[in-house]
Computed example of a mutant assay.
Amino acid sequence: MSGTTAFTSVPIVDISGLRSQDRAERERVAAEIGRAARDVGFLYISGTGIDESLFDRLLEATKAFFALPVEEKMRTYIGLSRCHRGYVPVGEEGMETGPPDFKEAFDTALDLPEDDPDYVAGNPMLGPNAWPDLPGFATAVTAYYGAVLEVGQQLLWAFAVALGEDPDVFSRHASKTPSQLRLVHYPYNPDATDGLGIGAHTDYECFTLLKPTAPGLEVMNGEGEWIDVPPVDGTLVVNIGDLLELWTNGAFVATSHRVRRVREERYSFPLFFNVDYDTEVKPLPQFATSDGAQRPTLRAGEHLFAQTAQTFAYLRNRIDSGDLVLPEDALALGQFGQQALHEVGHGG
């Protein structure tokens, strides 16, 4: 089965060729990205063209926010938002049956106006960001978000070409996406003893573009072994998410990953690149099976929201109280990725 190789390291792909005027060069890079997506599900990308100063300003703004007193950060508590934006305190996020994740975060996405029709209609993932009263914070976050989103559009083209599809097969669905940029802070933890910062999971969108400041990230290979993915200067980490696994019927695998607890303070900046909320995702015709067996169709935004609602305490509380009802076809957590394949293969 594709995507289950016993890799021991994550490849680095220079994507500067995706901006070349030469179609053959763009296709060469796309093919390299496609190989990494099939065999590993994770890759580093260099040559993104993102100005390093954008990240420097983002990191500076993020450190300033997380240094604020808790009561000040809670003014933008995510539970006050109607579209899942704002501060995520330690203990808010985690799997229902396990310990809460040892981290705090600030969640942002496409910053839409208050009169946006989707927001007015009650869409749970589209709307305005919840900005703290911190000079320069919104500007720094928005600038970085825009730059990484542009790289994501390039990758969306590359994935389509690598699969032999119409180059626009995915990007035609990416005009107003609920793509989230998370600012994540792992506090200094002198007592860290090989515990988990984030439990094993896959990402709910198409793919993720990640910039971490310290080690801790690990990815599962086809043998069920955990492989270290340390920061590499000048790169972003890219990993395949649930929707590309579904679109390719498993040819690309949403590789399971986790964060080990490390003593040092750590910041992490994942941008979860999604397609438009109402996009119907199902295996492309070339990946349909001869026996007609096919994974169920998902709506991109509903899948994101249903998975999110199962991992955030404020949303689980709304479900428990009856104020929030998940879509009828919502999947339980852990249905994608190497871990799911590994557990199925072992009768789990």
Rank of each mutant, 00 (worst) to 15 (best):
L315S: 15
N239F: 04
L304N: 08
V232A: 08
P270I: 01
S53T: 11
A340V: 01
P296K: 14
I227V: 08
T4M: 13
A130S: 14
G79W: 10
T235V: 08
Y267L: 04
L210F: 04
F336A: 02
F55D: 01
P230T: 01
N317K: 15
E32Q: 03
D56P: 02
D166W: 06
G197N: 07
S2Y: 09
G3I: 11
P11Y: 05
V120Y: 06
P99W: 14
D118I: 07
Q286I: 12
L304T: 15
A24H: 03
Q294A: 13
Q339W: 12
L333F: 07
G152P: 01
E245H: 09
G301T: 04
P270Q: 14
V237M: 00
L80C: 11
F269D: 06
Q339D: 14
V238H: 00
P190M: 15
G348Q: 15
T4H: 00
H303K: 08
P270N: 02
R75N: 13
V29T: 06
G98T: 14
L112N: 10
L243E: 06
A192D: 13
A67F: 09
T289G: 14
A300P: 04
H342Q: 06
Y314I: 12
E150L: 00
H346L: 13
D242L: 05
R85N: 05
L126S: 14
L110P: 09
G250I: 02
L341C: 05
G79M: 09
P100V: 13
V262Q: 13
D51L: 02
D276C: 00
T5H: 05
G216N: 00
A174C: 13
T297I: 12
A61F: 12
Q335K: 12
S256I: 06
V169G: 10
R38N: 07
G301R: 04
L134T: 07
L244Y: 10
G222M: 06
T289I: 03
G322R: 15
I198A: 11
G195N: 00
L18M: 14
I319L: 10
P187F: 15
V232M: 08
R318I: 02
A330L: 04
V238I: 00
V232S: 03
F137T: 11
V344A: 15
R28L: 00
G348C: 06
F272C: 14
E32K: 10
S256P: 07
G49M: 02
C83M: 13
P100S: 15
L243K: 02
P99K: 14
A24V: 01
R263S: 13
L217I: 03
A214P: 05
L341H: 04
V40R: 11
A309N: 15
I227G: 02
Q335R: 07
R75A: 09
L298T: 02
D323L: 02
A162F: 07
P285S: 05
A214I: 08
A6N: 08
F42C: 04
S256E: 08
I12Y: 02
F269E: 08
D323K: 15
F336N: 05
L126T: 14
L155M: 11
R318C: 07
P190L: 06
Q153E: 01
V70H: 00
L183T: 04
P100A: 12
D168W: 15
Q338H: 00
I50K: 01
R19T: 03
R75H: 02
K176I: 08
G146P: 10
F312T: 05
P283E: 05
R261V: 11
